[in-house]
Computed example of a mutant assay.
Amino acid sequence: MTLEDLHQLLITNAKNKTEEYTRLFHGRGHYYGDYKFLTVDSADKVLYAAFFAPDDEERAIVSMLQDFYGTDKKWQAMVIQRRYLKGAPSEVVAGELPEETFAFENGLKYRLNFHSNQNIGFFPDMKVGRAFVRDNAEGKNVLNLFSYTCPFSVAAMAGGARAVVNVDMAKGALATGRDNHRYNGLDIRGCRFMPYNILKSWSRIRKAGPYDLIIIDPPSFQKGSFAATSDYVKIIRRLNELAAENCTVLSALNAPELDTAFIKDLFRENAPEFTFVERLENMESFPSSDDERSLKNLIFQKGKA
């Protein structure tokens, strides 16, 4: 793929742009061969590009993106984030950031923060997972582990959940999560926000159970708090004591080095009461040269669905 090919692909993918958060280019899946260090998103009124590694073409890519941004009035600002630098700094390279920006998805919205030191408050590749939760949450007591800014909780409450318990170490993320519910007109009296280290807080989490729907969406690696290779199993071992008689689990994993067999084996060995049901299909806008290295959303069921 040449730079001109990339430019033309962006033009094609932006033609039918709506207000929905849209991935215009996904290089991280190695599907295109080149530019595997780059993602480009249309996020509300912002054209947002993230560089995950340095590259000799970076200046030329940014120049091309500025040309692409300037040929259309879809966006009010263009933001470049260099994820490979310490602190993952973001830079507004064109226009002016709106006072508020949101990720719009399936009639819901989530606050974005382009001044964050790494993630902007929303993971667009999880759209299918959030849709599953919304479709399966009615009347249920939901546990949302590694809740971050609580998009899963918003989806669950929008789907008629009876209650949601959100657990995440980051108090600031949980504060944004509360706001995300309010932005969507959802009553947070049915929600709890626990700013705890999950692996050290099982008694607190268990008290609000048992849970009919459990969401496990951890980071692949977070220094000092979680490593999927060694810590995911600690969660799976606790599932049976947290789960209701009939319980659905959405088990997510975004570590390219760990495949679906990794999760299935953990359940078979440590939570045999749960049966594998299906893997949710990823979005077409996140193509991958190897499906096992892409996002894995696995559904397990205890008892009757």
Results as ranks from 00 to 15, higher is better:
Ala305Arg: 14
Lys45Pro: 00
Ala175Pro: 00
Leu145Asn: 10
Tyr232Ile: 10
Thr229Tyr: 05
Ala271Trp: 08
Leu213Tyr: 10
Tyr48Leu: 05
Asn106Arg: 04
Phe104Thr: 10
Asn282Ala: 15
Ile235Thr: 14
Asn117Leu: 10
Asp179Arg: 14
Asp44Asn: 11
Ile214Ser: 06
Leu295Gly: 15
Gln8Thr: 04
Ser203Phe: 02
Ala170Gly: 01
Pro124Gly: 01
Thr275Met: 06
Ser294Met: 08
Gly27Phe: 11
Leu298His: 03
Val165Ser: 14
Asp5Leu: 03
Phe193Val: 02
Pro98Phe: 09
Leu143Gln: 04
Leu199Glu: 07
Phe122Ser: 07
Asn184Cys: 03
Asp55Ala: 12
Met126Glu: 12
Ile61Pro: 02
Leu242Cys: 11
Met283Ser: 15
Thr260Glu: 15
Leu250Phe: 04
Pro218Thr: 10
Phe193Trp: 11
Asp44Cys: 01
Ser220His: 03
Leu298Asn: 12
Phe114Asp: 01
Arg28Glu: 13
Leu143Asn: 06
Phe226Gln: 04
Leu199Asn: 04
Asp265Ala: 12
Val233Arg: 11
Ala103Phe: 08
Arg238Ser: 14
Leu85Thr: 00
Ser289Arg: 10
Glu58Ala: 07
Asn246Phe: 01
Glu99Ala: 15
Glu96Asn: 10
Ala88Asp: 05
Leu145Phe: 07
Glu99Ile: 09
His181Gln: 13
Tyr183Pro: 00
Ile263Ser: 08
Leu10Thr: 08
Glu284Ile: 02
Trp75Cys: 05
Phe68Met: 06
Glu4Asp: 08
Lys171Trp: 01
Ile11Asp: 11
Gly33Tyr: 05
Asn141Asp: 02
Asn141Leu: 01
Tyr148Arg: 07
Leu186Pro: 02
Asn144Met: 04
Ser251Pro: 07
Lys171Met: 13
Lys127Ser: 13
Gln118Asp: 15
Ser225Pro: 00
Asp44Leu: 04
Val167Lys: 09
Thr149His: 08
Asp41Gly: 03
Ser289Glu: 12
Lys140Asn: 05
Ser42His: 10
Leu266His: 13
Val46Asp: 04
Met126Ala: 11
Trp75Glu: 05
Leu145Val: 13
Ser203Arg: 11
Gly27Asn: 07
Phe25Asp: 12
Gly177Asp: 09
Ile80Gln: 12
Lys207Tyr: 10
Lys223Met: 03
Val128Arg: 04
Ala161Met: 05
Asp67Gly: 01
Ala131Trp: 00
Ser63Leu: 02
Phe102His: 10
Asn166Met: 02
Asn117Glu: 13
Asp72Met: 02
Ile263Tyr: 02
Asn254Tyr: 09
Arg182Trp: 08
Ile263Gly: 02
Met126Val: 02
Asn16Ser: 14
Arg134His: 08
Thr18Asn: 13
Val277Ala: 07
Glu278Ala: 14
Arg23Ile: 06
Lys73Glu: 14
Phe132Ile: 08
Leu145Cys: 11
Asn297Ser: 13
Leu280Ser: 11
Arg83Thr: 08
Phe68Ser: 02
